[in-house]
């Protein structure tokens, strides 16, 4: 790996300042579970690595007006253990499905949200868009793990975040600090992700000098249930082939509000309004859940090797909906 400066700020403002240096050729160290891979493979070569772990404000979970404020450095293990997060079932399900104890203990929620794509063309040095001599290697290449939705542009990788689908389904917001040291803004997580047209655009709206400090979860309400369903080939450490996070509000057994977000199917977490529409006004049954799954993938445009992912994504949505229903019925 290339040499880099190591910076260890104590405050958010310091962090923003340190990240803005070198024309933004900096990288954030949170848990470091993926940064290490990226540096060693030479996929990124930052001039400075900014370690956030001494910033105490980024740790912990606290109740605030309007919800729950979760520090970006909160580990997956803390998500599983913190009683304040217990009602957010879908998040616990995601943290649990990561399976690897090492990642659960070391990996952070903020790191997961900003995780760079696992696309093997990207990781083998062909850039975020997986191109060689201007041509996409992904389009006619080995794309079995690539996008089936939102893949008509240059970006064909899938968003790597495990938590984003469920968090977006919850209507979570992220607090972004920087680039001015004193500047911060709350942004709905749904709008945090972008699909780049050029390899240098990045996968989120974060600009040089900016970072995610917190995640704001809305307050829990009765009649609201959440669930996640990730399809993993391996029981051990593995990335989902597709996943779904859902949040349902019901009354009298009828869905009043539904948020359905798919993961690992598109360059961003994929909010499916069609799936929501298929559920609203219905009671949750095998049929209505299946209809939501159908709706979620109706506009899929699979690549040469990943049509199977359409089936998997459909299943993930259906099972996440059914899992949420079981929660509402008090069935584990």
């Amino acid at each position: 790996m290339s040499s880099f400066e190591y910076a260890s700020p104590n405050t958010e403002a310091e962090a923003a300042e340190m990240l803005a240096a070198h024309g933004g050729q900096t990288a954030i160290l949170a848990g470091g579970t993926d940064l290490h891979n990226l540096l060693r493979a030479g996929v990124i070569a930052p001039r400075r690595v900014v370690d956030l772990k001494n910033i105490s404000s980024l740790q912990g979970v606290s109740m605030v007006s309007g919800g729950l404020l979760v520090g970006a450095l909160t580990t997956l293990d803390e998500i599983l253990r913190n009683p304040l997060l217990a009602p957010y079932q879908s998040l616990l399900q995601v943290a649990d499905a990561v399976h690897s104890i090492q990642i659960q203990v070391q990996g952070t929620l903020g790191g997961d949200l900003c995780h760079l794509p696992n696309c093997w063309y990207y990781r083998n040095g062909y850039g975020l868009l997986g191109k060689e001599k201007g041509e996409s290697l992904v389009a006619g290449g080995r794309n079995q793990f690539h996008a089936i939705l939102g893949n008509q542009g240059s970006a064909k990788y899938v968003s790597a975040s495990r938590f984003a689908p469920s968090l977006i389904a919850w209507g979570a917001q992220v607090r972004i600090v920087g680039p001015d040291p004193d500047q911060s803004a709350m942004v709905p997580l749904e709008y945090f992700y972008v699909t780049p047209k050029s390899p240098n655009q990045g996968v989120t709206i974060l600009q040089p000098g900016q970072f995610v400090s917190h995640i704001l979860l809305p307050e829990i309400r009765d009649e609201l249930a959440s669930a996640s369903y990730e399809v993993l080939q391996l029981e051990g450490l593995d990335w989902p082939l597709a996943s779904a996070g859902v949040c349902l509000t019901t009354s009298a057994g009828i869905v009043r509000e539904a948020r359905v977000v798919l993961g690992h199917v598109a360059p961003t977490p994929w909010v499916s309004h069609d799936a929501s529409l298929a559920l609203v006004g219905q009671s949750i049954t095998e049929e209505s859940a299946a209809a939501a799954g159908e709706a979620a993938v109706a506009s899929a445009t699979p690549l040469s090797e990943n049509e199977y992912k359409v089936t998997i994504a459909r299943t993930a949505v259906k099972r996440a909906v059914l899992r949420a229903m079981h929660q509402l019925q008090g069935v584990s």
Binding site: R142, E235, G236
Partner: peptide
């Protein structure tokens, strides 16, 4: 193998998948 580049595209322990004891 990636036909276009001729590379062994999953030559890493993330993508060269091996079962764990749970599998």
């Amino acid at each position: 193998m990636d036909n276009k580049t001729g590379r062994y595209i999953n030559a890493d322990l993330l993508n060269y998948k091996l079962p764990g004891i749970g599998d």
